[in-house]
Simulated scan of single mutants.
Amino acid sequence: MSNIARFLSISAAFLLGACASTQDSHADLDSSRWYMTGEHYRIADIALPAFTLEKQGDDYKIAGTTGCNEFFASAAVSGDKLTVTTPLAMTRKACGEMSYQIELEFTQALEEGLTLVDDQWQLSNGAVMARVPSSN
């Protein structure tokens, strides 16, 4: 086998493996639940955002709470980015000042997209969404 043929074979195997690992890493996001850790805000007695991702065809449904209001939208995952692809639908309850500030920052971050860093979704303001451990 020539060096060029060997190089092409190895390259093809590497690319196919990379594609498979991307698909596998997204497969475990279906029905995954995420919560905002308290490290960024360092506050007590205020509910923080949480959401669930559910697979719908090639995309996801994202639904959860901002800590005060409920929301849902369609979302897509590409590489290490989670992007909301439709406008957020939300309830409109009155929230306290701090809850409203967290809600505003969270919804803005969702619109900008979250980045997967060390198995946690990172918001643009530095807040982190960690996976809720499965009960299995």
Rank of each mutant, 00 (worst) to 15 (best):
A50E: 08
N3Y: 13
L82Q: 06
G67F: 00
G64V: 00
A27V: 06
G79R: 07
T85Y: 01
V128M: 14
S74I: 02
T66K: 03
E39Q: 14
A44H: 08
D119W: 00
E39K: 15
P87Y: 03
R42C: 05
M36D: 02
A27L: 11
L110V: 04
G57T: 04
A75W: 04
G17Y: 09
H40Q: 11
P87A: 12
L16H: 05
L29W: 13
D45N: 07
M129Y: 02
F7Y: 12
L8G: 04
E70V: 09
S78V: 10
M36W: 03
S99R: 03
T83G: 03
Y35Q: 13
C19I: 14
L114Y: 05
D58M: 13
A13H: 06
T66V: 01
A20P: 05
G38I: 04
E112K: 13
V117F: 08
G38S: 12
P49S: 02
A50G: 07
W121Y: 12
L53E: 02
A50K: 04
I43C: 14
L110D: 00
I4E: 15
T66N: 01
A20H: 03
I43M: 10
G96H: 08
N3E: 13
S2W: 00
A18P: 01
P49N: 01
L110A: 04
E105S: 05
T115D: 08
A5R: 04
E111K: 12
M90H: 05
Q56S: 10
A130R: 06
G17S: 07
S2A: 03
S9E: 12
H40D: 01
D119L: 02
A73F: 14
L104M: 06
G126R: 08
E54V: 15
T22S: 11
A109C: 06
R42P: 03
Q56D: 11
S124C: 13
Y41Q: 01
S9K: 11
D28L: 14
A89C: 10
L114H: 05
S74M: 15
R131M: 09
A47C: 01
Y60N: 08
Y100F: 08
I4G: 07
G57V: 10
R6I: 14
A47G: 00
D59Y: 07
H26C: 11
S21D: 10
F14G: 11
I43L: 15
A130T: 05
N3P: 04
S99N: 00
A73S: 15
F51H: 00
F72V: 12
S31W: 10
F106E: 12
G38K: 03
N69Q: 08
F7L: 14
Q122G: 06
R42T: 14
C19R: 12
Q56V: 13
M36I: 05
I46G: 03
S9A: 09
E97L: 01
S135F: 10
F72K: 08
G57E: 03
L88C: 06
L88F: 07
Y60C: 04
